[in-house]
């Protein structure tokens, strides 16, 4: 987990969007087994890691290769407006989805207007 370990990683492309009460992060990590995902909070940083199997099954001799066979890693800095204790993760068809709840004070408040 050191930043400068010299290990090579793929930085997965992400979409980040916001709803009224959540921040939703989607990260593409194709070819990763669900059991080899690691999601960690370290102070303000949220780490997502996808480890490839130690020994990938033999596919034969490579004729043409474009897929980099490294682990996936990405780090996000979380602001104070999120609730760090409420992060929900799911993994579907190679896409990791994190739902991070906003802190109460960051949620939009509906203001009741009293009509005279």
């Amino acid at each position: 987990m050191e930043m400068d370990s010299g290990e090579r990683f793929i930085v997965p492309p992400v979409n980040v969007r916001e709803t009224a009460d959540q921040i939703i992060v989607e990260a593409e990590m194709p070819g990763i087994d669900k059991n080899r995902l690691e999601i960690m909070l370290k102070e303000k940083d949220l780490f997502i890691l996808g480890r490839r199997a130690k020994e990938e099954p033999s596919m034969g001799d490579p004729v043409w290769q474009e897929i980099p066979h490294y682990d996936f890693r990405r780090v996000f800095a979380l602001g104070d407006h999120v609730n760090r204790s409420s992060i929900h993760a799911s993994f579907d068809n190679g896409v990791l989805t994190l739902r991070i709840a906003k802190a109460e004070e960051a949620k939009p408040k509906k203001i009741e207007v009293a009509f005279a």
Partner: peptide, 10 residues
Amino acid sequence: ALDLYEDKDS
């Protein structure tokens, strides 16, 4: 991204 592999059967 795409990979192509070959072995003796396929």
